[in-house]
Design a protein around this nucleic acid. Structure first.
Ligand SMILES: [Mn+2]
Ligand SMILES: [Mn+2]
Ligand SMILES: [Zn+2]
Ligand SMILES: [Zn+2]
Lengths: 148, 148
DNA sequence: ACTTCATATGATAATGATTATCATATGGTA
DNA sequence: TACCATATGATAATCATTATCATATGAAGT
């Protein structure tokens, strides 16, 4: 098993191990970057720049590959705010993915931790679906931007 | 005002006129294509191919421009199913945008017309937000794909 | 119908994000 | 410490979308 690992959650280390991934320098750097930026939504380019402080030779291809595999094991969330590129953030601990509220005026992104989709999910289950995940973006003027 | 226009909803024609857009052959072709494919989600490329039957010389740049302006006046919805490209469909008549249910097994996309986000929207309004729109994708095994 | 001209178009180049390739490096195991 | 499958970094390739620009075309007015 991996040794000499600090800064990174044991649970994540175990997931990597279980999936047969090595804990390489680039992966360690990226995981640290994502942890240090909890609550933010970073592009691959932003991750690359931040990760270079920890692993100076890391390349963009590695960043993409790593973000992709971490996403596939639910360690990261991959989202888009319709800018033509993806953004990544550390997954929630809980089962339910949080929602995003985007202000059309100032562009600020807020998070909604509450699920509040029960009626929708119940509706689907009544029809024989089995819900596994969801992505909800709400466009809403934030309190500071409400047009008077 | 425009004359000799069949096949396209009067409401849409009026929106175009109000916004100062001309009713050109390419725009007519694209609107017809979108209407003929109601309920489907088309890529720019797919729209191009279908529109060529009606306007043989239409180019991809025009398709992108047109889809963009129609989206900006809410005649079309622009969505993505995380394939690295956008898809377009004719807007709903009602105020509320429908939701998408994507089956992780077969990839089928179903639509949910019911809103069912009342509690979520109420929650936001209680905090001073003013909701204007939302995009909801639910990932759910469809009845045919429920793993036994 | 004919003229006008601002808007729209089509061909094509440019951009930007992501993915593929491949020779080299490295992590975990024995 | 040696081994070798996995991972990496440099770089080219791909693919969707946007920008450019010379030409065409709608709507309005005659
Ligand atoms: Mn978030
Ligand atoms: Mn739809
Ligand atoms: Zn705001
Ligand atoms: Zn299915």
């Amino acid at each position: 098993m991996f040794k000499g690992v600090f800064k990174i959650d044991k649970k994540i280390i175990e997931s990597l191990d279980k999936a047969g991934y090595r804990l390489t320098q680039p992966r360690k750097a990226i995981l640290e970057v994502m942890k240090e930026n909890k609550g933010q939504h970073l592009t691959a380019e932003e991750v690359l720049l931040a990760a270079r402080d920890k692993a100076p030779n890391i390349g963009i291809a590695t960043v993409y590959r790593c973000l992709e595999s971490l996403t596939s094991m639910d360690i990261l969330y991959k989202t888009t705010f319709d800018e033509g590129k993806y953004r990544y953030e550390l997954s929630d601990e809980e089962i339910h993915r949080h929602h995003h509220v985007i202000c059309p005026a100032c562009g600020k992104i807020s998070e909604v931790e509450e699920d509040l989709l029960c009626s929708l999910e119940q509706h689907l289950e009544d029809q024989g679906y089995e819900v596994v995940d969801h992505h909800l973006k709400v466009y809403a003027y934030c309190p500071e931007c409400i047009p008077k």
